[in-house]
């Protein structure tokens, strides 16, 4: 299912956080949003999982205007893995993952057999099945991140949006999580800080600066020395990854000229 942001603008308290952002994520594509801190990446994402209503513009999922769908209906199409504040309630891993079925179940209806299998498979995929009965509060940061992704997968969405999903993950789990996203077949919009991971994982990248989309395209087209200098204010050489050919940045700590 295609995800389209059309002329999205967000203004809160007189400040423009996102300005006229248009971006399309094709069915099954992985598109990364990159940009400096405060450039509006997370704000744009929040409009997609409906934590925020855009001031103007539309989010379309499969051609439908998201704001015309009920919250439940859109949660069945779009799942999110977000950086929410610490959760205080000691759900078990199993219970936390099962809450991904919330948009599909009325009231307190218990999970059916298929849904329990679905949760078990998601926990297997993320390697957290052995933690099923553990309390979420006893987990490490990386384990919690994987619980969040398992919950998003259990939601059975067509579109998945992720805000910094690789936070707290060691390099093994970072690579594994991004490969899982690539193989999932879902339409993915992902905010990443690490430009090299973004270049390796994404089909296309959108670069945000001050709420505006500066450029969008394949990692090769987008990640240039000039752009990195202009947007991030750092000097970097762009090299081709010897194994995959993806563009990779080598940063220079020397002060910018």
């Amino acid at each position: 299912m295609e995800l389209g942001l059309e002329g999205l603008s967000v203004v809160t308290d007189g400040r423009s956080l996102v300005r006229d952002l248009s971006l399309t994520v094709g069915t099954g594509q992985v598109v990364g949003l990159v940009g400096p801190n405060g450039s509006g990446k997370s704000t744009a994402l929040r409009c997609v999982y409906r934590a925020l209503r855009p001031s103007t513009g539309t989010v379309r999922v499969g051609g439908e205007d998201l704001s015309r769908l009920t919250a439940r209906r859109s949660a069945r199409l779009v799942a999110a893995m977000v950086q929410d504040g610490a959760v205080d309630v000691d759900f078990t891993v199993e219970e936390a993952v099962a809450l991904g079925r919330a948009p599909h179940l009325r009231g307190n209806r218990a999970l059916g057999r298929r849904e329990r299998d679905l949760c078990a498979r998601a926990m297997d995929r993320l390697g957290i099945r052995h933690l099923a009965r553990r309390g979420v509060l006893t987990l490490s940061g990386g384990e919690r991140q994987r619980v969040l992704l398992a919950r998003a997968l259990v939601q059975e969405p067509a579109i998945l949006v992720l805000d910094e999903p690789t936070n707290h993950l060691d390099v093994h789990h970072q690579v594994e999580l991004l490969s899982l996203l690539r193989d999932s077949g879902l339409t993915v919009l992902i905010v990443l800080h690490d430009l090299n991971l973004a270049a390796a994982a994404c089909d296309r990248l959108g670069v945000l600066h001050d709420g505006r989309l500066v450029t969008a395209g394949t990692p090769e087209a987008v990640l240039t020395t000039d752009l990195v200098h202009e947007v991030f204010g750092v000097r970097a050489a762009v090299v081709s990854h010897p194994l995959t050919g993806d563009p990779q940045l080598l940063y220079s700590l020397a002060p910018s000229p």
Partner: peptide
Amino acid sequence: YRYGRALDVLALGDETAASLGI
């Protein structure tokens, strides 16, 4: 009691709740 699952979801935080349709 019937709000049970909604309360579960609310306890996860507002961002997550929104993404889960609550």
